[in-house]
Design a protein around this nucleic acid. Sequence first.
DNA 1: ACCGGTACATAGTAACGCAGAATAGCCGCC
DNA 2: GGCGGCTATTCTGCGTTACTATGTACCGGT
Lengths: 109, 109
Amino acid sequence: MGKQMTEMLKGTLEGIVLALLSVQPEYGYEITARLREMGFSDIAEGTVYALLVRVEQRGLVGVEKVPSEKGPPRKVYSLNAQGREYLEEFWRTWSFLAERLQQLHDGGR
Amino acid sequence: MGKQMTEMLKGTLEGIVLALLSVQPEYGYEITARLREMGFSDIAEGTVYALLVRVEQRGLVGVEKVPSEKGPPRKVYSLNAQGREYLEEFWRTWSFLAERLQQLHDGGR
DNA sequence: ACCGGTACATAGTAACGCAGAATAGCCGCC
DNA sequence: GGCGGCTATTCTGCGTTACTATGTACCGGT
């Protein structure tokens, strides 16, 4: 992953993960795999787990421990009301930024 | 400015500034003012200046000191060939990210 | 017994934007 | 003359985030 992508992900990765969780509850390993499917090929597992801990501590998601047939138990995260609110705020912020950048990209101001 | 915006600007602000410089050379104070016009009302001056020092040290911009009628001399920055290349890379990275987020926003996968 | 896949966790590092303050030059006004 | 206000740049310390690298643990197949 380029350095530019790394820096850009700061602030957006969290929103991406919350958006994924808004569709359906998922656990860390699964989220990482899904991100890779989406093309974020080099997002480190550790990054995702750390992020999930953060959003949990901020009370944006709920957690449920579910035993797995393979390996240790899964921690399944689901977006709660506060998380949905936060996600909406994220989309507003993103839209604002995306609009300005779109303008800049389409031939200056 | 919200905390989300602060985090999102990491990595994109640099691209925004370089995009501004690709239109025409400008100096720090002017860039800050232009950003505010664009709606980025709370971007700290210090942030812009630090960013300019960074891109200069990485050889993406040239600098020319120009005396001002009012106040201390201005440091006018202009995008060079390497900077243009870097900016193109930035747009590619941005487009990639924007596409995925667009998909997520338009009702999940 | 071992290896590979599943699943989570953590310590240390680097990069970036922000808050706040300092510095410096020029102007107009009381 | 001094003082505040505008222009313009610089610096320090701080908080947040993603990456690297490593470790732990559980299971199934061979």
